[in-house]
Design a protein around this nucleic acid. Sequence first.
DNA 1: GACACAAAGGTTATATAGTAACATAGTCGA
DNA 2: TCGACTATGTTACTATATAACCTTTGTGTC
Lengths: 173, 173
Amino acid sequence: MEHTPIACSHHDHDHCISDALEAARQVCLGRGVRLTDLRLQVLELIWQNHKPLGAYTLMEMLAKANTRRVAPPTVYRALDFLLEQGLIHRINVLNAFIGCPSPTTKHQSHFLICRACGIAIELNQPALSQQIIGVAQDAGFVVESQSLEVSGLCANCAGNSEHPVHEHGHQHA
Amino acid sequence: MEHTPIACSHHDHDHCISDALEAARQVCLGRGVRLTDLRLQVLELIWQNHKPLGAYTLMEMLAKANTRRVAPPTVYRALDFLLEQGLIHRINVLNAFIGCPSPTTKHQSHFLICRACGIAIELNQPALSQQIIGVAQDAGFVVESQSLEVSGLCANCAGNSEHPVHEHGHQHA
DNA sequence: GACACAAAGGTTATATAGTAACATAGTCGA
DNA sequence: TCGACTATGTTACTATATAACCTTTGTGTC
């Protein structure tokens, strides 16, 4: 039996956003790094929904919100900061970025990405991380980071959900 | 106890190349698709070593080999063909391409990528693929393709090899 | 407050990666 | 040898990302 990811099921997404922003504030406070207006704004835009956003899409959104031109380095620097702090992840197959729901706990980047609706569901599967580390170790390989990007159809889009279908939702499966 | 991947250990890489090209010929013959000069040339260049190559690097190599300009679409079309036939894989974290040692058997794209020497070691771990499918299934997600890219240090570069260190090697671990 | 320093952001230009659209040239069966 | 199809050539362009340099802002120290 499957349990539909929160990201796929009906949920109060404003709550997602406020939680994420609050978590980010705490993380930055604790680490003595500055969550500036720009960085916060980028993070907030990324959290608008559960679909990864490209840097240039973000640029346009920023330009619109601030009613002035925003150049690539501005966005990329903010993204670099957020990546370093683990507040977002990069989805390589999409050249895009998505918010991390659990920036405080060290974890690897494992995602399910729906080709139909575009959402990316972050997995939280320490056992899987461990198995990957084990496989690498057997080859004498020292793991520094993992990127697992599984493409396919999410529960909603596959007609595979036991819940009423809705736009968002997430889960640490 | 670890067994050093072939890709990391001393080996006759010419043999790798000729095996790969012969396998490619068989695959294309069997499927009734054409392994043209250009496609073969691109595949051969990709197999020069176990390091993923970018499309533009390939372009330059082609231009040099053919002593005339080669434009991006030329390379990308050849790459698209090779990807479709499963003769190469794309490494997303590097925007680069690498030869597949087992194009006949259906499998997912799982790689160990060394940040020091640049080699990419393809894993052959059906159990891992299955575990990933299982995790996805628990979330009601239908898997279509997997991309696992593990970054770190290979056995050689980590000083982790029981064999004399050498430039190449591969393995289906 | 005034200064010095560091960190963040702005600006311009450019590098790198990938594609659209259309023209030309082989391949192969009828 | 004609026509249809596939592959490649060519030009132009879009998308993604970074380098280099400058200006502003925050922060600690006097």
